[in-house]
Design a binder for these strands. Structure first.
Length: 114
DNA sequence: ACTTTGACTATAA
DNA sequence: GTTATAGCCAAAG
C-alpha cells in the first residue's frame, strides 16, 4: 500500500467539508471532533492551506467561538468571507455572525462522535 | 534540537 | 458587558 501522509490539517479539511450550507462552527468544535480539543489554534493554522487543497474547503463557515470572522482577512479580501456567508444565508454584522448560537453546527454532535 | 508563531479558548479581574 | 493574561499544541524557520 502506498504511503499516506495523514497530517493534522487533512483531518481538519474533512470536518469543514461536512459543514452544511448556512451553518457555522468554531475552531474548537472541529478540534474537539478530532480529539484535539486543545488545538483550536492549529485548526485555523491549517486553514491557511485550505485554499490550496482540493476540493476547496468552505473555511468561511468556520469562525471563532464568539462567532467573529477572525480569519476574514485570509480570504484574499477584507470582506470576502462576509460576502460568502451572506450568500449562504448567514447574517453578518460588524464582522460578527448574528444569531450565531442558532446556526452553530457542532461536528462532534452532528457526526455522532460523542 | 530550540525558538517563534498562529484564522483559539478559558479563566480572572 | 469588557479587557488582560495564561494555556494550549502543531508546524515552520
Amino acid at each position: 500500500m502506498p504511503k499516506k501522509e495523514n497530517t493534522f490539517a487533512q483531518d481538519v479539511y474533512a470536518i469543514c467539508r461536512e459543514i452544511p450550507t448556512g451553518r457555522v462552527t468554531s475552531y474548537g468544535a472541529i478540534a474537539k471532533a478530532l480529539g484535539l480539543s486543545r488545538s483550536a489554534r492549529m485548526v485555523g493554522y491549517a486553514m491557511n492551506n485550505s485554499f490550496t487543497v482540493k476540493p476547496s474547503v468552505p473555511a468561511h463557515r468556520v469562525v471563532n467561538r464568539n462567532g467573529v470572522l477572525t480569519g476574514k482577512h485570509h480570504f484574499g479580501g477584507p470582506d470576502t468571507m462576509q460576502v460568502l456567508l451572506e450568500q449562504e444565508g448567514i447574517v453578518v454584522k460588524d464582522d460578527q455572525i448574528q444569531d450565531f448560537s442558532n446556526i452553530f453546527w457542532d461536528p462532534a454532535v452532528e457526526l455522532g462522535n460523542l
